[in-house]
Design a protein around this nucleic acid. Structure first.
Lengths: 115, 115
DNA sequence: CAGTATCCCAGGAGATACTG
DNA sequence: CAGTATCTCCTGGGATACTG
């Protein structure tokens, strides 16, 4: 696996590429919540620990641009916005689930309590 | 899943914990190479693109401390050092393989050429 | 050969303020 | 409600030099 360019950025392996798309502190938490139902912006904001509007907005926009989620705006009063997962996003959820289970195993392995 | 502390650091979910152990630019490439044979320091250094001694040494030390790899020093002249994967490291390789395959799929999905 | 020690920088993320 | 705009800060990683 040689280096390759994508999005004007150099990558050294497929894992780097994958994490450039769904990595960072918030994209997986967002996709994880969208996996089985639509969420509103404000619901995501209050559900994800410590996220700022800036990071939520930024993450949603990138996931949208990369086709992992879709957005629907309902012209009500007040207006309502809903985010949904796409087919591409569903594939991401599979690997997020695997990573999450691995993380849980590792925590047990390291003797870290969880609830 | 509430927040939890480990290694004097706050985590919000199991994925964060997993990536704190095997994330970063070099730990997965190292584990990936060690998965089926022992490697010497210098071989890793010349195999992993662009890695500096500082980052190789730092990554190896952390993987060692966290029990993902082991190290054996042969008192020859000149001295030889070999790194091996452990049982814990082998479990990590499983998820790295999954992430790698996901990355390859995603690259295809985004129309990125690979060799 | 197999590392360690310093210095430095970019970009991911936090804090705060503002808007259609 | 659903965001955007600034400014700042921190830390992962780069560059360089040195050693048993």
């Amino acid at each position: 696996m040689p280096d390759f360019f994508a999005d004007k950025h150099l990558f050294h392996n497929p894992v780097e590429f994958a994490l450039s798309k769904i990595g960072g502190s918030y994209k997986m938490p967002i996709l994880w919540r969208l996996k089985d139902k639509a969420w509103r912006y404000s619901a995501l904001a209050s559900s994800i620990p410590h996220i700022s509007d800036r990071m939520l907005s930024k993450s949603l926009k990138e996931l949208l641009n990369d086709g992992f989620i879709s957005k629907e705006i309902f012209p009500e009063v007040p207006p309502r916005t809903e985010y949904n997962i796409t087919e591409r996003g569903k594939k991401a959820v599979i690997i997020i689930t695997a990573l999450r289970n691995y993380g849980l195993d590792l925590m047990k392995d390291f003797g870290i309590a969880q609830e």
